[in-house]
Structure formats: structure tokens, C-alpha cells
Amino acid sequence: MEFLVASTVGLLTAAGVYLLLRARTFPVVLGLALLTYAVNVFLFAMGRLAINMPPVITATSPGYSDPLPQALVLTAIVISFGMTALLVVLALRAYLESDSDHVDIATDGDLKGGPH
């Protein structure tokens, strides 16, 4: 199971980094989404993989599954979900206003001070 989880995280991360480097907004959004999936699975695994274990320690239980990473993952999911939504809206606005979906700005290096 460790091998499966580890290779899943690795694959998601590799695909995410590749898409992130495409420098167009749609692949970048997808890349960031994949990266956040990867990090969520990774955070789960950091409390060690345990099956059929209770999250609360009792006198009779043989062990426990670490509840802290699960709480962290929940926070991370909420934040990354919200951020992805924001990024989609922002990328759409930027595309509609500038007619280009490149993530990098001002290829001719000519940055004006913006509208004042």
C-alpha cells in the first residue's frame, strides 16, 4: 500500500508541475489542482498509513490512526478549493480584459504603470 500511495503522490505532483510550467492559464489552473490533490494525499500519509485503527486512544485498542493530519487536510482542502475558484475567476477576467491567456506578463518588457 505504501508503494501505491507514494507513486500516486509522485505521479500527481509530476503532472501538476508539468502543467504548471505550461504558462497558459487553463493548464496552470489544472496543474495547481493536481498539486493540491497530491499534497492532500501526502498530508494524509504523513501520519503513517494505518488501517482499521480508531482515531481515539482507548485502553483496549491496539493502536490509533493519527487524527491530526486529517484535520490538517480538511483545512488544506478548504483553502485550496477556495483559491482555485478565485484563480479561475481572476484568470477569466484577465483573459477577457487583455485577450491573452498567457500567465507571464509584458513579453516586450514594457511595463506601464497601469491605469491611474
Binding site: L90, R93, E97, S98, H102, I105
Partner: peptide, 11 residues
């Protein structure tokens, strides 16, 4: 807002 600022914002 503004086109350039939004692009910089996305980045």
C-alpha cells in the same frame, strides 16, 4: 482593475 494589473494579479 485594468488589464495589466489583472495579468500581474494572476501571476
Amino acid at each position: 482593475g485594468g488589464a495589466m494589473r489583472l495579468k500581474a494579479g494572476v501571476q
